[in-house]
Amino acid sequence: MGKSLVFSLGLQEFSVQISAVKEIKEWSKATAFPAAPSFVEGVVNVRGAVIPLVDMGQMIGVSSDNNEKKAIIFLRNETKVIGFSVTNVTDISDMDDTHFRDLPELSSENLKYFSNGIQSLGERMIFSVNVSSLFEGSLQ
């Protein structure tokens, strides 16, 4: 399954495939705009490009509003780049099929939409996040 970037939203760990990661930056305040969905913080400037900043925790619905946000992970999907603010970036891990499990039946529809399963790494439990779902969700 290849390498994935592991990060945290609140206390929970998540991962995205490393190939979609364009850049990681320290969190900074975005320029807000009216009528934005609640999970969109606004837009930020990354070397001349205007990129939307999405609070991933809020979008997936796994963390409360006042989670600390320390980092922005910029992901690329097709032609677009979107920044996702996360609590922190943990490490890069190899993911493997043998430790990959389906989400529990009663997981929220939202979580099921964004995540396709759980990777267990020893004691750790990491939700694997689907990049194209993240983009679809963000662009709504």
Binding site: T31, A35, V43, V50, P52, S138
Partner: peptide, 29 residues
Amino acid sequence: FVVKNLEDNYRKIKCFSTATILGDGNVAF
């Protein structure tokens, strides 16, 4: 101002079709 299209990375926004980047590095609509 150099015009940046919001749709390049996002989508259309109400009231603002484009944005620019100011001297302080912040985005302005």
